[in-house]
Lab assay of single mutants.
Amino acid sequence: SLSVDNKKFWATVESSEHSFEVPIYAETLDEALELAEWQYVPAGFEVTRVRPCVAP
């Protein structure tokens, strides 16, 4: 099958004044980091952490 098993990760994104967490959907932690950097670094943010979303 061609289905992709995307998992939810939380990326911590920082600017000079703010820090916030955004959801990233990817297959692996490395891919989540790449996606977060691709989305947020060009906008002037720094991705400081990516972690798996742990269900309660």
Rank of each mutant, 00 (worst) to 15 (best):
S1T: 10
S1L: 09
S1H: 11
L2H: 12
L2T: 10
L2A: 11
L2I: 12
S3P: 09
S3R: 11
S3V: 11
S3I: 11
V4C: 15
V4L: 10
D5P: 14
N6V: 15
N6Q: 13
K7D: 03
K7M: 08
K7L: 08
K8S: 05
K8L: 15
K8I: 14
K8N: 04
F9M: 00
F9R: 00
F9E: 00
F9Q: 00
W10Y: 07
W10G: 01
W10C: 15
W10D: 00
W10N: 01
A11V: 14
T12K: 07
T12C: 08
E14W: 12
E14N: 08
S15P: 01
S15G: 07
S15Q: 06
S15N: 14
S16R: 12
S16M: 09
S16K: 12
S16H: 09
H18E: 10
H18N: 07
H18A: 11
H18V: 13
H18M: 13
H18C: 15
S19N: 05
F20H: 04
E21T: 08
E21P: 01
E21F: 06
E21I: 09
V22Y: 04
V22D: 02
V22H: 03
V22W: 04
P23C: 15
P23W: 11
P23V: 15
P23T: 09
I24K: 01
Y25N: 04
Y25Q: 04
A26P: 01
A26F: 02
A26C: 05
A26V: 02
L29E: 06
L29F: 05
L29S: 05
L29W: 13
E31W: 04
A32L: 03
A32M: 02
A32H: 01
A32D: 00
L33I: 13
L33S: 05
L33Y: 13
E34M: 15
E34H: 12
E34V: 12
L35Y: 08
L35C: 06
A36I: 04
A36Y: 03
A36M: 04
A36N: 01
E37T: 11
E37L: 14
W38R: 15
Q39E: 08
Y40A: 04
Y40I: 04
P42S: 09
P42Y: 07
P42F: 08
P42R: 11
P42K: 08
P42G: 09
A43F: 14
A43S: 08
A43V: 07
A43Q: 14
A43P: 04
G44K: 00
G44R: 00
F45W: 06
F45R: 03
F45V: 02
F45I: 01
E46Q: 14
V47W: 04
V47R: 00
V47C: 03
T48M: 06
R49D: 08
R49P: 02
R49S: 14
V50C: 01
V50S: 01
V50Q: 00
R51L: 06
R51A: 05
R51F: 06
R51Y: 09
R51E: 06
R51K: 05
R51D: 04
P52I: 12
P52C: 05
P52T: 07
P52D: 05
P52A: 10
P52M: 12
C53P: 04
C53G: 06
C53Y: 07
C53Q: 06
C53W: 06
C53H: 10
C53N: 08
C53V: 07
V54D: 09
V54W: 11
V54P: 10
P56A: 10
